[in-house]
Write a protein that binds this DNA or RNA. Structure first.
Lengths: 208, 208
DNA sequence: TATAAATTTGACCAAATGGTCAAATGACGT
DNA sequence: ACGTCATTTGACCATTTGGTCAAATTTATA
Protein backbone atom coordinates (compact mmCIF):
# COMPACT_ATOMS: atom_id res chain seq x y z
CA UNK A 1 0.00 0.00 0.00
CA UNK A 2 2.38 2.62 1.21
CA UNK A 3 4.75 3.49 -1.56
CA UNK A 4 7.75 3.54 0.73
CA UNK A 5 6.80 0.08 1.86
CA UNK A 6 6.06 -1.80 -1.29
CA UNK A 7 9.56 -1.77 -2.66
CA UNK A 8 11.26 -2.86 0.51
CA UNK A 9 8.59 -5.50 0.92
CA UNK A 10 10.12 -7.81 -1.67
CA UNK A 11 13.51 -7.49 -0.12
CA UNK A 12 12.22 -7.84 3.42
CA UNK A 13 10.14 -10.88 2.61
CA UNK A 14 12.95 -12.65 0.81
CA UNK A 15 15.42 -11.91 3.55
CA UNK A 16 12.96 -13.16 6.11
CA UNK A 17 12.36 -16.42 4.27
CA UNK A 18 16.06 -16.93 3.75
CA UNK A 19 16.91 -16.20 7.37
CA UNK A 20 14.22 -18.56 8.56
CA UNK A 21 15.48 -21.32 6.29
CA UNK A 22 19.06 -20.58 7.26
CA UNK A 23 18.20 -20.81 10.93
CA UNK A 24 16.73 -24.27 10.47
CA UNK A 25 19.56 -25.58 8.31
CA UNK A 26 22.34 -24.11 10.44
CA UNK A 27 20.70 -25.51 13.57
CA UNK A 28 20.41 -28.97 12.06
CA UNK A 29 23.69 -29.20 10.22
CA UNK A 30 26.04 -26.74 11.84
CA UNK A 31 27.90 -24.05 9.94
CA UNK A 32 30.04 -26.36 7.83
CA UNK A 33 27.32 -28.92 7.28
CA UNK A 34 24.83 -26.37 6.05
CA UNK A 35 24.97 -25.77 2.31
CA UNK A 36 23.75 -22.65 0.61
CA UNK A 37 21.91 -24.89 -1.84
CA UNK A 38 19.96 -26.53 0.98
CA UNK A 39 19.11 -23.18 2.53
CA UNK A 40 17.98 -21.73 -0.78
CA UNK A 41 15.89 -24.80 -1.54
CA UNK A 42 14.21 -24.61 1.84
CA UNK A 43 13.50 -20.93 1.35
CA UNK A 44 12.10 -21.69 -2.10
CA UNK A 45 14.48 -19.50 -4.06
CA UNK A 46 17.29 -20.29 -6.49
CA UNK A 47 20.71 -20.43 -4.95
CA UNK A 48 21.89 -17.45 -6.98
CA UNK A 49 19.13 -15.43 -5.40
CA UNK A 50 20.40 -16.26 -1.95
CA UNK A 51 23.76 -14.82 -2.92
CA UNK A 52 22.04 -11.75 -4.21
CA UNK A 53 20.74 -10.97 -0.73
CA UNK A 54 23.61 -12.37 1.30
CA UNK A 55 26.96 -12.19 -0.44
CA UNK A 56 28.50 -15.12 1.41
CA UNK A 57 27.43 -18.02 3.55
CA UNK A 58 29.23 -16.46 6.48
CA UNK A 59 27.36 -13.18 6.08
CA UNK A 60 24.09 -15.10 6.19
CA UNK A 61 25.23 -17.00 9.26
CA UNK A 62 26.27 -13.77 10.91
CA UNK A 63 22.77 -12.34 10.39
CA UNK A 64 21.20 -15.41 11.94
CA UNK A 65 23.49 -15.20 14.96
CA UNK A 66 22.79 -11.53 15.41
CA UNK A 67 19.10 -12.26 15.68
CA UNK A 68 19.78 -14.62 18.55
CA UNK A 69 21.95 -12.06 20.19
CA UNK A 70 19.03 -9.68 20.30
CA UNK A 71 16.86 -12.30 21.94
CA UNK A 72 19.60 -13.09 24.43
CA UNK A 73 19.86 -9.46 25.45
CA UNK A 74 16.10 -9.14 25.83
CA UNK A 75 16.03 -12.12 28.18
CA UNK A 76 18.99 -10.73 30.08
CA UNK A 77 16.97 -7.70 31.04
CA UNK A 78 14.73 -9.88 33.15
CA UNK A 79 17.55 -10.15 35.59
CA UNK A 80 16.97 -6.54 36.53
CA UNK A 81 13.26 -7.00 37.15
CA UNK A 82 13.62 -6.82 40.89
CA UNK A 83 15.97 -5.95 43.70
CA UNK A 84 14.97 -9.13 45.45
CA UNK A 85 17.22 -12.01 44.44
CA UNK A 86 14.45 -14.59 44.43
CA UNK A 87 12.32 -12.52 42.14
CA UNK A 88 15.18 -11.43 39.92
CA UNK A 89 16.50 -14.94 39.50
CA UNK A 90 13.06 -16.41 38.96
CA UNK A 91 12.38 -13.84 36.26
CA UNK A 92 15.72 -14.38 34.59
CA UNK A 93 15.68 -18.16 34.67
CA UNK A 94 12.08 -18.14 33.49
CA UNK A 95 12.90 -15.83 30.61
CA UNK A 96 15.84 -17.99 29.57
CA UNK A 97 13.71 -21.12 29.74
CA UNK A 98 11.05 -19.46 27.62
CA UNK A 99 13.68 -18.38 25.13
CA UNK A 100 14.96 -21.93 24.75
CA UNK A 101 11.40 -23.12 24.31
CA UNK A 102 10.27 -20.44 21.89
CA UNK A 103 13.41 -20.34 19.77
CA UNK A 104 15.00 -23.76 19.99
CA UNK A 105 16.76 -23.53 16.65
CA UNK A 106 18.26 -20.15 17.36
CA UNK A 107 19.25 -21.29 20.82
CA UNK A 108 21.03 -24.30 19.40
CA UNK A 109 22.95 -22.16 16.94
CA UNK A 110 23.97 -19.96 19.85
CA UNK A 111 25.30 -22.94 21.79
CA UNK A 112 27.09 -24.32 18.78
CA UNK A 113 28.70 -20.95 18.20
CA UNK A 114 29.96 -20.84 21.77
CA UNK A 115 31.17 -24.43 21.58
CA UNK A 116 33.16 -23.60 18.48
CA UNK A 117 34.95 -20.88 20.41
CA UNK A 118 32.68 -18.05 19.34
CA UNK A 119 34.40 -17.25 16.02
CA UNK A 120 31.63 -14.84 15.09
CA UNK A 121 30.52 -13.42 18.42
CA UNK A 122 33.87 -13.05 20.14
CA UNK A 123 33.38 -9.32 20.03
CA UNK A 124 30.10 -9.68 21.90
CA UNK A 125 31.76 -11.82 24.56
CA UNK A 126 34.53 -9.28 25.02
CA UNK A 127 32.27 -6.28 25.33
CA UNK A 128 28.55 -6.58 25.98
CA UNK A 129 28.63 -9.92 27.75
CA UNK A 130 31.67 -9.07 29.84
CA UNK A 131 30.00 -5.84 30.93
CA UNK A 132 26.72 -7.55 31.69
CA UNK A 133 28.43 -10.21 33.75
CA UNK A 134 30.60 -7.76 35.64
CA UNK A 135 27.60 -5.68 36.55
CA UNK A 136 25.40 -8.58 37.62
CA UNK A 137 28.25 -10.17 39.52
CA UNK A 138 28.12 -7.09 41.70
CA UNK A 139 24.41 -7.52 42.24
CA UNK A 140 24.92 -11.10 43.33
CA UNK A 141 27.73 -10.08 45.65
CA UNK A 142 25.52 -7.45 47.22
CA UNK A 143 22.82 -10.04 47.82
CA UNK A 144 25.40 -12.30 49.42
CA UNK A 145 26.71 -9.47 51.58
CA UNK A 146 23.14 -8.69 52.61
CA UNK A 147 22.74 -12.30 53.72
CA UNK A 148 20.09 -13.04 51.13
CA UNK A 149 22.16 -15.57 49.23
CA UNK A 150 24.63 -18.15 50.36
CA UNK A 151 28.20 -17.41 49.33
CA UNK A 152 28.74 -18.51 45.76
CA UNK A 153 30.90 -17.28 42.94
CA UNK A 154 28.45 -15.41 40.74
CA UNK A 155 29.90 -16.88 37.56
CA UNK A 156 29.26 -20.40 38.80
CA UNK A 157 25.64 -19.38 39.21
CA UNK A 158 25.43 -17.82 35.77
CA UNK A 159 27.03 -20.83 34.12
CA UNK A 160 24.54 -23.10 35.83
CA UNK A 161 21.62 -20.98 34.69
CA UNK A 162 22.88 -20.69 31.14
CA UNK A 163 23.62 -24.37 30.83
CA UNK A 164 20.43 -25.62 32.41
CA UNK A 165 18.14 -23.41 30.40
CA UNK A 166 19.97 -24.00 27.13
CA UNK A 167 19.58 -27.70 27.76
CA UNK A 168 15.89 -27.46 26.96
CA UNK A 169 16.77 -26.36 23.44
CA UNK A 170 19.99 -28.29 22.87
CA UNK A 171 18.87 -31.65 24.17
CA UNK A 172 15.25 -31.55 23.05
CA UNK A 173 15.78 -34.69 21.01
CA UNK A 174 17.38 -36.57 23.90
CA UNK A 175 14.54 -35.44 26.16
CA UNK A 176 12.00 -36.68 23.66
CA UNK A 177 13.70 -40.06 23.51
CA UNK A 178 13.58 -40.34 27.29
CA UNK A 179 9.96 -39.24 27.17
CA UNK A 180 8.77 -42.19 25.15
CA UNK A 181 9.63 -40.57 21.86
CA UNK A 182 7.48 -37.48 22.28
CA UNK A 183 8.73 -33.94 22.77
CA UNK A 184 7.97 -32.29 26.08
CA UNK A 185 4.46 -30.91 26.00
CA UNK A 186 3.67 -27.48 27.34
CA UNK A 187 2.55 -28.71 30.73
CA UNK A 188 5.70 -30.76 31.26
CA UNK A 189 7.81 -27.84 30.16
CA UNK A 190 6.10 -25.48 32.58
CA UNK A 191 6.64 -27.94 35.41
CA UNK A 192 10.29 -28.25 34.47
CA UNK A 193 10.63 -24.48 34.38
CA UNK A 194 9.14 -24.12 37.85
CA UNK A 195 11.35 -26.87 39.23
CA UNK A 196 14.51 -25.46 37.71
CA UNK A 197 13.70 -22.10 39.23
CA UNK A 198 12.92 -23.59 42.60
CA UNK A 199 15.96 -25.80 42.66
CA UNK A 200 18.46 -23.13 41.77
CA UNK A 201 16.96 -20.55 44.07
CA UNK A 202 16.62 -23.14 46.79
CA UNK A 203 20.25 -24.01 46.32
CA UNK A 204 21.61 -20.53 46.84
CA UNK A 205 19.04 -18.54 48.78
CA UNK A 206 19.37 -18.38 52.53
CA UNK A 207 16.53 -19.69 54.64
CA UNK A 208 13.59 -17.33 54.59
CA UNK B 1 58.57 -58.53 22.98
CA UNK B 2 55.62 -60.85 22.84
CA UNK B 3 55.14 -62.04 19.33
CA UNK B 4 51.41 -61.73 19.51
CA UNK B 5 51.88 -58.16 20.63
CA UNK B 6 54.45 -56.81 18.26
CA UNK B 7 52.24 -57.12 15.21
CA UNK B 8 49.26 -55.37 16.68
CA UNK B 9 51.53 -52.62 17.96
CA UNK B 10 51.80 -50.84 14.62
CA UNK B 11 48.09 -50.99 14.10
CA UNK B 12 47.30 -49.98 17.66
CA UNK B 13 49.68 -47.04 17.62
CA UNK B 14 48.38 -45.73 14.31
CA UNK B 15 44.80 -46.09 15.38
CA UNK B 16 45.56 -44.31 18.62
CA UNK B 17 47.25 -41.40 16.86
CA UNK B 18 44.41 -41.14 14.36
CA UNK B 19 41.72 -41.28 17.02
CA UNK B 20 43.48 -38.63 19.06
CA UNK B 21 43.77 -36.36 16.04
CA UNK B 22 40.20 -37.09 15.04
CA UNK B 23 38.96 -36.19 18.50
CA UNK B 24 40.63 -32.80 18.31
CA UNK B 25 39.48 -32.01 14.80
CA UNK B 26 35.92 -33.22 15.30
CA UNK B 27 35.68 -31.23 18.53
CA UNK B 28 36.93 -28.07 16.86
CA UNK B 29 35.16 -28.32 13.54
CA UNK B 30 32.18 -30.58 14.04
CA UNK B 31 31.51 -33.64 11.92
CA UNK B 32 30.96 -31.83 8.64
CA UNK B 33 33.67 -29.27 9.21
CA UNK B 34 36.30 -31.87 9.95
CA UNK B 35 38.16 -33.11 6.89
CA UNK B 36 39.93 -36.42 6.69
CA UNK B 37 42.90 -34.55 5.27
CA UNK B 38 43.12 -32.36 8.37
CA UNK B 39 42.84 -35.34 10.68
CA UNK B 40 45.50 -37.28 8.78
CA UNK B 41 47.83 -34.30 8.76
CA UNK B 42 47.42 -33.82 12.50
CA UNK B 43 48.08 -37.50 13.09
CA UNK B 44 51.13 -37.27 10.87
CA UNK B 45 50.09 -39.86 8.33
CA UNK B 46 49.06 -39.63 4.67
CA UNK B 47 45.36 -39.40 4.10
CA UNK B 48 45.29 -42.72 2.28
CA UNK B 49 46.68 -44.34 5.40
CA UNK B 50 43.80 -43.00 7.44
CA UNK B 51 41.41 -44.71 5.08
CA UNK B 52 43.41 -47.90 5.43
CA UNK B 53 42.60 -48.01 9.14
CA UNK B 54 39.15 -46.41 9.06
CA UNK B 55 37.23 -47.05 5.86
CA UNK B 56 35.10 -43.92 6.06
CA UNK B 57 35.00 -40.64 7.92
CA UNK B 58 31.84 -41.77 9.64
CA UNK B 59 33.47 -44.98 10.87
CA UNK B 60 36.25 -42.91 12.39
CA UNK B 61 33.74 -40.57 13.98
CA UNK B 62 31.81 -43.51 15.34
CA UNK B 63 34.95 -44.85 17.03
CA UNK B 64 35.61 -41.49 18.63
CA UNK B 65 32.06 -41.27 19.93
CA UNK B 66 32.19 -44.78 21.29
CA UNK B 67 35.20 -43.85 23.37
CA UNK B 68 33.22 -41.05 24.99
CA UNK B 69 30.37 -43.39 25.60
CA UNK B 70 32.65 -45.58 27.67
CA UNK B 71 33.74 -42.61 29.74
CA UNK B 72 30.12 -41.53 30.18
CA UNK B 73 29.17 -44.94 31.50
CA UNK B 74 32.10 -45.01 33.89
CA UNK B 75 31.05 -41.68 35.36
CA UNK B 76 27.46 -42.87 35.57
CA UNK B 77 28.49 -45.59 37.97
CA UNK B 78 29.37 -42.97 40.55
CA UNK B 79 25.69 -42.43 41.00
CA UNK B 80 25.49 -45.78 42.69
CA UNK B 81 28.29 -45.05 45.11
CA UNK B 82 25.96 -44.62 48.04
CA UNK B 83 22.43 -45.10 49.24
CA UNK B 84 22.49 -41.63 50.70
CA UNK B 85 21.29 -39.08 48.15
CA UNK B 86 23.74 -36.38 49.20
CA UNK B 87 26.66 -38.72 48.82
CA UNK B 88 25.41 -40.30 45.64
CA UNK B 89 24.70 -36.98 43.96
CA UNK B 90 27.96 -35.47 45.14
CA UNK B 91 29.86 -38.43 43.71
CA UNK B 92 27.96 -38.35 40.43
CA UNK B 93 28.17 -34.61 39.89
CA UNK B 94 31.83 -34.65 40.86
CA UNK B 95 32.57 -37.46 38.43
CA UNK B 96 30.78 -35.65 35.63
CA UNK B 97 32.63 -32.43 36.37
CA UNK B 98 35.92 -34.30 36.33
CA UNK B 99 34.99 -35.92 33.07
CA UNK B 100 34.30 -32.56 31.45
CA UNK B 101 37.60 -31.28 32.81
CA UNK B 102 39.72 -34.28 31.88
CA UNK B 103 38.22 -34.90 28.46
CA UNK B 104 36.93 -31.57 27.19
CA UNK B 105 37.24 -32.47 23.53
CA UNK B 106 35.41 -35.74 23.88
CA UNK B 107 32.78 -34.07 26.01
CA UNK B 108 32.20 -31.43 23.37
CA UNK B 109 31.81 -34.06 20.68
CA UNK B 110 29.27 -35.77 22.89
CA UNK B 111 27.26 -32.58 23.26
CA UNK B 112 27.44 -31.83 19.58
CA UNK B 113 26.23 -35.31 18.81
CA UNK B 114 23.24 -34.88 21.10
CA UNK B 115 22.50 -31.43 19.68
CA UNK B 116 22.47 -32.89 16.19
CA UNK B 117 19.77 -35.31 17.29
CA UNK B 118 22.12 -38.17 18.10
CA UNK B 119 22.39 -39.59 14.57
CA UNK B 120 25.12 -42.00 15.68
CA UNK B 121 24.19 -42.79 19.27
CA UNK B 122 20.43 -43.01 18.95
CA UNK B 123 20.71 -46.68 19.75
CA UNK B 124 22.48 -45.86 23.00
CA UNK B 125 19.75 -43.39 23.94
CA UNK B 126 17.06 -45.94 23.26
CA UNK B 127 18.64 -48.74 25.24
CA UNK B 128 21.43 -48.14 27.73
CA UNK B 129 20.57 -44.56 28.59
CA UNK B 130 16.85 -45.19 28.83
CA UNK B 131 17.49 -48.10 31.17
CA UNK B 132 19.94 -46.12 33.27
CA UNK B 133 17.54 -43.24 33.60
CA UNK B 134 14.56 -45.44 34.41
CA UNK B 135 16.49 -47.20 37.13
CA UNK B 136 17.91 -44.03 38.70
CA UNK B 137 14.57 -42.30 38.47
CA UNK B 138 13.35 -44.94 40.86
CA UNK B 139 16.21 -44.25 43.22
CA UNK B 140 15.37 -40.56 43.24
CA UNK B 141 11.70 -41.31 43.80
CA UNK B 142 12.59 -43.51 46.75
CA UNK B 143 14.64 -40.73 48.24
CA UNK B 144 11.74 -38.36 47.81
CA UNK B 145 9.33 -40.85 49.35
CA UNK B 146 11.74 -41.27 52.25
CA UNK B 147 11.66 -37.52 52.77
CA UNK B 148 15.31 -37.10 51.95
CA UNK B 149 14.73 -35.03 48.83
CA UNK B 150 12.18 -32.40 48.00
CA UNK B 151 9.70 -33.48 45.36
CA UNK B 152 11.23 -33.04 41.93
CA UNK B 153 10.86 -34.83 38.66
CA UNK B 154 14.00 -36.93 38.46
CA UNK B 155 14.58 -36.10 34.81
CA UNK B 156 14.62 -32.39 35.59
CA UNK B 157 17.38 -33.13 38.05
CA UNK B 158 19.34 -35.25 35.59
CA UNK B 159 19.05 -32.66 32.87
CA UNK B 160 20.32 -30.00 35.22
CA UNK B 161 23.29 -32.12 36.22
CA UNK B 162 24.14 -33.09 32.66
CA UNK B 163 23.86 -29.54 31.39
CA UNK B 164 25.75 -27.89 34.19
CA UNK B 165 28.66 -30.30 34.15
CA UNK B 166 28.91 -30.36 30.36
CA UNK B 167 29.08 -26.59 30.45
CA UNK B 168 32.62 -26.78 31.83
CA UNK B 169 33.71 -28.50 28.64
CA UNK B 170 31.40 -26.86 26.11
CA UNK B 171 31.82 -23.28 27.21
CA UNK B 172 35.47 -23.39 28.25
CA UNK B 173 36.26 -20.67 25.75
CA UNK B 174 33.46 -18.42 26.96
CA UNK B 175 34.57 -18.98 30.55
CA UNK B 176 38.11 -18.07 29.63
CA UNK B 177 36.92 -14.86 28.02
CA UNK B 178 35.01 -13.93 31.16
CA UNK B 179 38.06 -14.86 33.21
CA UNK B 180 40.29 -12.23 31.68
CA UNK B 181 41.25 -14.43 28.77
CA UNK B 182 42.70 -17.30 30.80
CA UNK B 183 41.20 -20.76 31.11
CA UNK B 184 39.98 -21.78 34.55
CA UNK B 185 42.91 -22.97 36.62
CA UNK B 186 42.67 -26.09 38.73
CA UNK B 187 41.85 -24.24 41.92
CA UNK B 188 39.01 -22.28 40.33
CA UNK B 189 37.68 -25.46 38.77
CA UNK B 190 37.71 -27.28 42.10
CA UNK B 191 35.86 -24.41 43.72
CA UNK B 192 33.30 -24.45 40.92
CA UNK B 193 32.88 -28.18 41.30
CA UNK B 194 32.23 -27.87 45.02
CA UNK B 195 29.77 -25.04 44.50
CA UNK B 196 27.87 -26.85 41.78
CA UNK B 197 27.55 -29.87 44.04
CA UNK B 198 26.47 -27.78 47.00
CA UNK B 199 23.98 -25.74 45.03
CA UNK B 200 22.24 -28.66 43.40
CA UNK B 201 22.14 -30.73 46.55
CA UNK B 202 21.07 -27.70 48.55
CA UNK B 203 18.32 -27.11 46.03
CA UNK B 204 16.74 -30.51 46.32
CA UNK B 205 17.74 -32.01 49.65
CA UNK B 206 15.45 -31.54 52.59
CA UNK B 207 16.76 -29.74 55.65
CA UNK B 208 19.14 -31.93 57.59
C1' DT C 1 66.33 -66.53 1.76
C1' DA C 2 61.87 -67.05 -0.39
C1' DT C 3 57.18 -66.16 0.15
C1' DA C 4 53.20 -64.28 1.87
C1' DA C 5 51.03 -60.77 4.41
C1' DA C 6 50.62 -56.20 6.31
C1' DT C 7 51.43 -51.42 5.67
C1' DT C 8 52.53 -47.11 3.24
C1' DT C 9 51.82 -43.63 -0.10
C1' DG C 10 51.44 -40.59 -4.26
C1' DA C 11 48.41 -40.06 -7.85
C1' DC C 12 43.96 -39.93 -9.11
C1' DC C 13 38.64 -39.34 -9.46
C1' DA C 14 33.74 -38.16 -9.18
C1' DA C 15 30.74 -35.47 -6.57
C1' DA C 16 29.64 -31.55 -3.99
C1' DT C 17 30.25 -26.79 -2.73
C1' DG C 18 30.55 -21.68 -2.44
C1' DG C 19 30.38 -18.33 -5.39
C1' DT C 20 30.07 -15.68 -10.19
C1' DC C 21 27.96 -13.77 -14.30
C1' DA C 22 25.31 -12.15 -17.86
C1' DA C 23 21.06 -12.22 -19.73
C1' DA C 24 16.12 -11.93 -18.76
C1' DT C 25 12.28 -10.17 -16.27
C1' DG C 26 9.69 -7.09 -13.51
C1' DA C 27 8.59 -2.60 -11.13
C1' DC C 28 8.27 2.22 -11.03
C1' DG C 29 8.65 7.15 -11.80
C1' DT C 30 8.40 10.52 -15.66
C1' DA D 1 5.87 4.46 -23.75
C1' DC D 2 10.51 4.83 -22.00
C1' DG D 3 14.54 4.50 -19.23
C1' DT D 4 16.26 3.17 -14.90
C1' DC D 5 16.73 0.36 -11.23
C1' DA D 6 15.86 -3.85 -8.52
C1' DT D 7 15.27 -8.68 -8.88
C1' DT D 8 15.47 -13.36 -10.78
C1' DT D 9 17.68 -17.30 -12.60
C1' DG D 10 20.10 -20.96 -15.29
C1' DA D 11 24.54 -21.94 -16.60
C1' DC D 12 28.98 -22.07 -15.27
C1' DC D 13 33.59 -22.46 -12.59
C1' DA D 14 37.49 -23.35 -9.41
C1' DT D 15 38.27 -25.63 -5.31
C1' DT D 16 37.63 -28.92 -1.87
C1' DT D 17 36.31 -33.32 -0.27
C1' DG D 18 35.75 -38.26 0.74
C1' DG D 19 37.35 -42.02 -1.08
C1' DT D 20 40.04 -45.41 -4.45
C1' DC D 21 43.92 -47.89 -6.40
C1' DA D 22 47.91 -50.01 -7.66
C1' DA D 23 52.54 -49.99 -6.98
C1' DA D 24 56.17 -49.82 -3.53
C1' DT D 25 57.96 -51.02 0.88
C1' DT D 26 58.26 -53.20 5.20
C1' DT D 27 57.48 -57.08 8.32
C1' DA D 28 56.76 -61.71 9.71
C1' DT D 29 56.99 -66.67 8.72
C1' DA D 30 58.73 -71.05 7.01
Amino acid sequence: MDQRNRRPTVRAENERALLEAAEAIFAEQGFSGATTAAIAKRAGVPKANLHYYFPTKEALYRCVVERVLTAWLAAAQSFDASEDPREALAAYIGAKMDLARAMPLASRIWSAEIMRGAPIIQDFLDTTLSDWVASRENAVKRWIAAGKLKPIEPKVLFYMIWATTQQYANAAHEMATLNGGFPLDDAAFERAKAQVIETIIGGIATAT
